[in-house]
Nucleic acid binder design. Structure first.
Lengths: 156, 156
DNA sequence: TTTAAACTGTTCAAAAATGAACGATTATGA
DNA sequence: TCATAATCGTTCATTTTTGAACAGTTTAAA
């Protein structure tokens, strides 16, 4: 709990997040564009891939992405053959999105590109000590926990 | 320097940044919308305000914002009376952007809104220890330093 | 000097993202 | 049961963002 330091100081951390954010978005946009993807398409793929499959509903909730944007991003990824789509059994309203083999290969390729956001970030991580890395993960988890409760949380 | 842990582990930190990012963008969009601003307008204001003045060129470089987007965001902030605009003396190509008194008041108001991104983030910071806060700042600085050197850095 | 190249910001047509209305399905409860 | 409300995803008109061409200014080199 911050004591002497006040809100004005919190701004410093906020700007520091913004600074990292700027750079990661720039690299992500470059990576996406270099691979013929828009940002929503790229984000959706990055979000689904580690889980192999995910409901479109859950995906939207996790990403805070407007459902019209999400719907179109998914549509194009399906057309590109990176994900398949099938109704959730027991609830025909929802769709389950499944990473295809092509999608998995494409994802792995994205991660391995030297000028991609993943490798660039990985190189940046090398500048951190193991301890710093762990502390960063922990602190982020604490912050994320509180942040996700803030705001209206209106359905996107 | 990470030893045993490998690239796959770096991905965990990358996803952790994405998680914070998502929430901050969501809160920033809400804050912007609640105050009649688009995201570029909001970002530009947040970027100029602490410095009171800045050239449009520097602003673009710092934000990685396409210059057409920047130009329009600035135009609307000028029309709204939050910033003034004058040619840089000694170089009539560049423009200097100066925060007006109205702009400063508006900025301070944005920071003080209970449901605004600043206060929300500030509340989240309270969940961190002072030590965690300092470590976070330090680690971010290290990462930002490396990140900003990565990628094409083509002029936006 | 004069000319060509580089730089800074604006404009505008094209592309991308979004809100609102909608269709289809499921849940609620009278 | 049946009617109403809520949920999930799509469509499409509108808004927002962006790249590319451009105009004005400055720099560099001939």
């Amino acid at each position: 709990m911050m004591k002497g330091t006040e809100a004005s100081c919190d701004m410093r951390l906020l700007y520091s997040f913004f600074n990292i954010h700027k750079n990661l978005v720039r690299l992500a946009k470059e990576t996406a564009a270099n691979n013929g993807l828009t940002m929503p398409q790229f984000s959706v793929l990055m979000m689904i891939a580690p889980h192999k499959k995910m409901t479109q509903k859950i995906l939207g909730e996790r990403m805070f992405m407007p459902k019209s944007t999400l719907s179109q991003a998914v549509e194009s990824l399906v057309k590109a053959g990176f994900i398949r789509r099938r109704p959730v059994e027991g609830n025909r309203r929802e769709l389950e999105l499944i990473l295809s083999d092509e999608g998995e290969a494409f994802f792995n390729d994205l991660l391995s590109q030297e000028d991609g956001v993943a490798k660039c970030f990985s190189r940046a991580c090398h500048a951190l000590s193991e301890q710093q890395y762990r502390q960063l993960l922990e602190a982020h988890e604490v912050l994320a926990e509180v942040l996700k409760k803030q705001g209206e949380i209106k359905s996107c």
